[in-house]
Design a protein around this nucleic acid. Structure first.
Length: 269
DNA sequence: CGTCCACGTCTAC
DNA sequence: TAGACCTGGACGG
């Protein structure tokens, strides 16, 4: 479930499903290399917030106002599910057991997701473009002289220090909606020439959120019927994974999807 | 069977 | 700037 909109939907899913329950213990799947998560509380409830591509779980002590944060990222395949005890997924790696017989699980087939008990947001990731839009814009404008913005805009959009939450499908959809912006020119030039890029860094994730997420695989689907239908997905995915579009591998080995009209411009350096 | 591919970071030459 | 980290689905022989 893993770009900005999916992280936001994940936090919402947790708040709707775990905020009133009483959790008692936490289990880590031994196959996962991550640290054990130890609850200092006998009973607790769980709430969550997302910011870009990070998510924080908050364990709230049932007996006091104490709160324990757990910083998480979802990797390529991480998501949360509620199941009954005994029905946990094979790839559930963190399991929060409830007194009512249900379990909140962090399910992550590829195990690229991570967690760190006792921490909230990383300081090397920028503001969330959807809920901290002014800070997001300021962070970019005041750093536009830096070398990160020498890179082509299609690559800079993946830099989480400035574009926290933008991933491979969002960069494609953002740039595709600016038909006059050459995705291979420097990020600095692109942003100065077309400040609307920054607005789309909010608008496209907002659209994805509204449609229930841009999820690509059905097994990453904790949202059930809320998830986008094939028809509404077409509003979101006009470029990424679409027949007729061009692709190129960027310097990070990620496939960038773009309008074929830019093919003559695609010189990386 | 085998090879390629996937919504993301990380760290090590 | 390669690879490493992982599983599994799609597709080819």
């Amino acid at each position: 479930m893993p770009e900005l909109a999916e992280l936001k939907l994940t936090a919402q899913f947790i708040n709707e499903n775990a905020g009133n329950l009483k959790f008692t213990n936490i289990e880590k799947n031994p196959v996962h290399k991550g640290a054990e998560v130890i609850s200092p509380f006998k009973k607790f409830k769980i709430t969550s917030k997302s910011r870009g591509k990070e998510l924080v779980l908050y364990l709230h002590d049932a007996e006091s106002s104490d709160v324990l944060p757990i910083r998480m990222t979802m990797g390529m395949s991480g998501h949360f599910r509620m199941t009954n005890t005994g029905g946990e997924d094979k790839h559930a790696h963190l399991k929060f057991y409830n007194t009512d017989g249900t379990v909140l699980s962090f399910v992550d087939v590829r195990r690229f997701g991570k967690w760190k008990q006792g921490f909230e947001w990383s300081d090397n990731r920028g503001p969330d473009p959807t809920v901290e839009y002014d800070e997001f814009v300021e962070n970019i404008k005041s750093n536009l002289h830096k070398i990160a913005f020498d890179k082509p805009i299609m690559e800079a959009l993946m830099n989480q220090q400035y574009f926290n939450g933008i991933g491979n499908y969002l960069r494609a959809e953002i740039l595709y909606r600016l038909p006059h912006v050459n995705p291979f020119i420097s990020a600095r030039d692109a942003i100065q020439q077309e400040p609307k890029i920054l607005e789309l860094c909010k608008a496209i994730p907002d659209l994805a959120f509204m449609l229930g997420g841009g999820r690509i695989k059905s097994w990453e689907n904790p949202l059930g019927e809320m998830a986008a239908t094939p028809e509404t997905r077409r509003d979101l995915f006009q470029c990424y994974n679409r027949k007729g579009m061009s692709t190129i591998k960027d310097r990070n080995g990620r496939r960038f999807w773009f309008d074929p009209k830019w093919n003559s411009e695609r010189i990386l350096n």
